[in-house]
Structures are given as structure tokens and as C-alpha cells.
Amino acid sequence: MAHRIDSTADVVEFLLEQHNRIKQLFAETADAPTSEERERKFYELRRLLAVHETAEEEIVHPRARKVIDHGSDIVDARLAEENKAKRALAELEKIDVNSPEFTVALAKLRDDVIDHAGHEESEEFQQLRAQLDHEDLERMRGIVEFAEKTAPTRPHPGVESPAANMLAGPFAAMLDRTRDLIAKPRG
């Protein structure tokens, strides 16, 4: 079942809700009682992380770079974290979900992603909310939602800039969605 976010939320509320859902999915993946359930939860987690980060890279970070204090420094640090997380997620995809290596790698990725989300929330999102009016934030939410609908559903390390996302995104998204149909966990 897809997690639906309130349609009246602005972009900051929307992204905060997704951060909460990502944290929840890390726990559900780690605590899954069966191999099949762990696979399903990891599939959902990987997909949400991929589309969420792509939308931030294409829409949120460029705006933050322009309108918040020290925006370039803040965004550059977030992009470095996102690249690291994408690499870890891509490696995690190759590991058997029932192995001890998966459990250790998932916990490490969870810690890194939660730390990254905390930086975004305190350094980027709060300033965006302070610098932009409500209409801008609502418009950005619609654009983020659209970007997520067309985003790749798997990690693509090294594709963190808006230009790289725009260039690689449509082809990567098409391939990812085809791979997802073939490899989607049952149930």
C-alpha cells in the first residue's frame, strides 16, 4: 500500500513526511519477520529513497542554493552525503537480505540517511521556509511530486546535479521501472 501525504502540505511538510516514512521503512525492513517481507520493505525503501533524493537534487537544492544563507556550501555538503548514500544503497542491493552483511550495511545506511535528513531539516528546510512565502512552498511541492513520478527508482551514484539528473534521469527511470516490474517482490 502506498503511503499518501496530505495534499495541503507545502514542500517542507511533504519532505518531512517522506523523511519520517523513510525512517519507518528502515525499521520495517530491519524488523521484517520473513525474508519475503524484508525484500518487500527494502524494495519500497530503495524506491522512496531514490525518487526522494532525485526530486531534492532537481528542485529543492537548486532553490536552496539561491535563496538561503551559505546555500552553496550547505547544498554541496548534502550532495556529497547523497552520493555516499547512493553508493551504499547500490551495494546493499547486491547483498542477500537474509545475510548478516545486509543487516550491518542496512544499519549503517540508516544512520547515515538519518544524519543527512537531520542536516537537511535544520540547515536547508528551515531556511527555505523562512525565505519563501507559502505560495512558493506549495508550488515547489507540486513540482517535487511531479519530479518524483518521473524519477529513477534505483540509486544512481554520481548523478547528483540537476543537469546530470535531467540528462540521465529519463533513460535511467525507464530502465529502473522496467527492472522493478521484473524484480518486484511478490505479495
Rank of each mutant, 00 (worst) to 15 (best):
D115L: 10
G158P: 05
R65T: 02
E124V: 14
S72R: 12
D10K: 10
L92E: 02
A151L: 12
H3M: 12
A105K: 15
F102I: 11
L109R: 10
G158M: 06
R129W: 03
I95V: 14
E58R: 15
A151G: 09
V97Y: 00
A90G: 03
E91W: 01
E123F: 05
T34D: 05
F102M: 09
K66S: 11
E37K: 13
L79P: 01
L181R: 15
Q126V: 14
A90F: 03
L89K: 05
E37L: 12
A32Q: 01
I59H: 04
E44H: 02
H156N: 06
N165Y: 02
V159N: 09
Q131W: 05
H3I: 10
G169F: 09
K23D: 12
Y43A: 09
T103S: 15
D69G: 03
E82G: 11
H19Y: 05
K66R: 12
A164E: 13
A147F: 01
E13R: 12
R141W: 03
D115E: 15
G142D: 15
V12G: 09
F42R: 02
V67Y: 04
V104L: 07
L49D: 01
S7D: 15
L106P: 06
P185D: 10
A168K: 07
A183T: 13
H19G: 06
K94V: 00
I59E: 11
K86Y: 07
D176F: 06
H116Y: 12
A64D: 01
I68H: 03
H70G: 13
V12N: 05
R110T: 11
R78E: 15
A117K: 09
I114C: 05
T103I: 05
K86C: 05
F26E: 07
L89R: 04
D176V: 06
A147Q: 11
G158V: 09
